[in-house]
Design a binder for these strands. Structure first.
Lengths: 177, 177
DNA sequence: TAAAATTACTTGACATCTAAAGTAAAACTG
DNA sequence: CAGTTTTACTTTAGATGTCAAGTAATTTTA
């Protein structure tokens, strides 16, 4: 699979140090990954529970609607798949649900009979706006201990991590079965 | 209407600034949250696909085994539920699977007939050690563009975020149905 | 332009996951 | 110490997720 290019150790005379450094690096990266996962779980669980309690909806539905809200002309299924970073089958299922609930519409693209364009209905847009407002409040509240500077720095570092990661996940990156 | 148009400009500016600041803060927190979610999805998808391809197993199974590996005396279901930040029913299901595969054992706690203690079998421990080694390699590789300093800072900021969040998710924090 | 390959999406089988209800043992209460 | 409540876990129904196979339309290719 992925050939991990063995970066030649700069100073060969410190093999032990290199080994130690590599090990420390491993633990550092793992620590960051696990900590980030914990944060994501905490926040995600909180938001999910509130969405269910206050709006009777789910996080995946909210996420899909959020994408559509930024694209008034609608999005094709493939585009949704890419943006939500989930597989196509999944997007099909969630779109089915939202369509049944009258929150989105699916219309075959006249330019390409295979594709369909998904749009928020007026009811969907209204519901989303109400939810988005609360959603923002919840997230902001959870970040309340962090200063503006800390949030800026965190945003920067996560941008760097995202680029580092996206560059390396290659073709097996997104689940786009 | 015919009132003196005295709307003190300084005051208005202050109000506007305050509003602007609040709004900016909202967007900052949201930006960080969405960026973190993107990183988590990228890394999680990558790891999941590799676990499946190279070991024929899944991320939830790996995570559960990882918890057991650090607790040679075993863990009770409730403890696993807490550590994995998922609901009890979920842990029951995954444990069932791992038990069928002979990777873990479930033994009723003699002190408390309701509870059961879950342990890695020798086969489970062996398989986990093999997987963990690769897992570490994958994660480290994805972080490769970040310097040690950046990773340290990221770890710090995520620790702060985790505390800020954990403090506020209160009773509805973890999914411990 | 007919056949092959690709693309866009859906379907089906199955693994997670939650929320809520169910079961049984332990702890608490009057 | 009987009755209630709590705790630990399981079960169930339903939503979400992957992966792989299927369908149909578009594009490529020979």
């Amino acid at each position: 699979m992925t050939r991990r290019q063995k970066a030649s150790v700069p100073c060969a005379n410190v093999a032990l140090d290199a080994e130690t450094r590599v090990t420390a690096d491993h633990h550092q990266s793992l620590r960051v990954w696990l900590r980030m996962l914990a944060c994501t779980n905490l926040i995600g669980n909180h938001v999910r529970q509130r969405l269910q309690a206050q709006f009777g909806t789910t996080l995946p539905r909210f996420d899909l609607m959020a994408q559509l809200e930024r694209a008034p002309q609608g999005l094709k299924m493939g585009e949704l798949t890419r943006r939500l970073m989930v597989t196509g089958g999944n997007v099909t299922g969630i779109t089915d649900m939202l369509e049944e609930e009258g929150l989105v519409t699916r219309a075959t693209d006249p330019q390409d009979q295979r594709a369909s364009r998904v749009k928020l209905t007026e009811a969907g847009a209204q519901q989303f706006r109400r939810m988005a407002q609360e959603h923002e409040r919840w997230v902001v509240e959870l970040f309340d201990d962090l200063t503006e500077k800390q949030k800026s720095r965190l945003a920067e570092l996560l941008a760097a991590l995202k680029m580092s990661t996206a560059q390396r996940v290659g073709s097996s990156a997104g689940p786009r079965s």
